[in-house]
Nucleic acid binder design. Structure first.
Lengths: 227, 227
DNA sequence: TCGGCGACTGACTGGCCAGTCAGTCGTCCA
DNA sequence: TGGACGACTGACTGGCCAGTCAGTCGCCGA
């Protein structure tokens, strides 16, 4: 077996072991046993246990980052938003083992590593937030605290994906995409008036700055109420 | 110091240590150092490291369970829903250290423990789902897959609470409650027609069964489209 | 004053496991 | 044919830490 295959084989085995046992309970001995090599071989390919894990996670991050596209307001927005949701969901579901770890076992490692994961999350959230603020300028995102919207979105996404990855439920991916989109679009509670009105594109002349949101949180809701 | 105080002191110290280091990196030595007792003393009060953690988590679960009330459709629904959100948020934020662990470090322990946490989540989700189905019968929850709604809701809630507990942001609690409610009520995307219509109480005569939802997921959205 | 008792102590042990390294094995080229 | 080299091996070690237990301390009642 060539060096590259051996390396891949070790990563495959590691992913498997990590996802069933979690990071801490995964022993290097388990990994090498599954990969059918001696322990020493492991250390010819990876500096230590942590580095194979970091590499595994890094791959997933990259794949997600590469898949998401910036939304162009001049063409079909719904489809583009759905495309992005689809891309993220696909990247995660294609690697259920790793996703499981990332969403549940991830932390509790040494601080440096936790920081890496958090910074990825924060980056994603910031990106999403920026998109939403832009969307507010275009009238396709309700007024309100874009940061909160981003938080809610990631939370809902994570939870649903995690559910699909843990249990053997496995909804069709397109259904995941559609449902998530629908939820972001209209919530589900039908009590009292909803947040702000949903006008057809109201000509984005309301403000000159593209980022008029920020800390409009509770006020936004009050506005909705009074409207 | 009496036995009860000592015990409390140990739990306080453990909570502190667990939340900063995570379960695995928290050493019994750290806990006893913080509590200013010798290691042996720890074992006079707790069988082992895991049992103090389990006890800590159990307390939190109980507090949440006790705080949530069944919604009575005959009086102010919005206020009752908000009350429940508020109760959960309060229980979690009152114990930020533990919440942090539960939402990030929780898993990766022995399977029995992971099972305990999962079953609590599943229980909460089932409860919420049942409420939502009831709500659908009353016309205060949009048609669609109630299980998914429950998933989204818990996801969004977890993410926001986690954010408030990790960073030192600390939004006012009432704002958390209001924003979450607003999000559940109307989402934020303003692209195309939203999920089903939001009529004022449409006399719940649509169906006789109180649980007409289930697997109406994607169809529900299509219905919204065509309407 | 004594001795019994419950609370507390902390040096120690035993097991576990990440990581090491001296050595084997097979291949290829001179 | 032999020897050099790279891949692989697995018994071993060193450190860490949960959990132990023989012993101290101080209080209280007789």
């Amino acid at each position: 077996m060539g060096k590259i295959e051996r390396r891949k084989e070790l990563m495959r085995a590691a992913r498997e072991v990590f996802s069933t046992k979690g990071y801490h309970d995964a022993k290097v001995d388990d990994i090498v046993a599954l990969a059918k090599v001696a322990k020493g071989t492991f250390y010819l390919y990876f500096a230590d246990k942590r580095s194979i894990f970091v590499e595994l996670v890094g791959t997933l991050f990259e794949r997600i980052g590469a898949a998401v596209l910036k939304v162009d307001p001049r063409s079909d927005i719904e489809e583009q938003v759905k495309h992005n949701i689809r891309a993220i969901v696909a990247a995660l579901l294609d690697d259920p083992a790793l996703t499981k770890i990332l969403f549940s076992y991830a932390a509790g490692l040494d601080p440096a590593f936790v920081t890496a994961i958090r910074s990825f999350y924060d980056g994603s959230k910031a990106l999403l937030e920026a998109s939403l603020i832009e969307g507010q300028g275009l009238g396709i995102v309700a007024p309100g605290d874009a940061r909160l919207f981003a938080t809610f979105t990631l939370g809902a996404l994570k939870e649903l994906v995690f559910e699909n990855v843990t249990a053997e439920k496995a909804m069709p991916r397109e259904e995941i995409v559609n449902e998530l989109f629908a939820f972001l679009q209209g919530g589900y509670l039908r009590i009292g008036p909803p947040r702000a009105a949903s006008q057809p594109p109201p000509a984005p002349a309301a403000s000159k700055k593209p980022t008029p949101a920020k800390k409009a949180a509770t006020p936004a809701k009050k506005a909705a109420r009074s409207g």
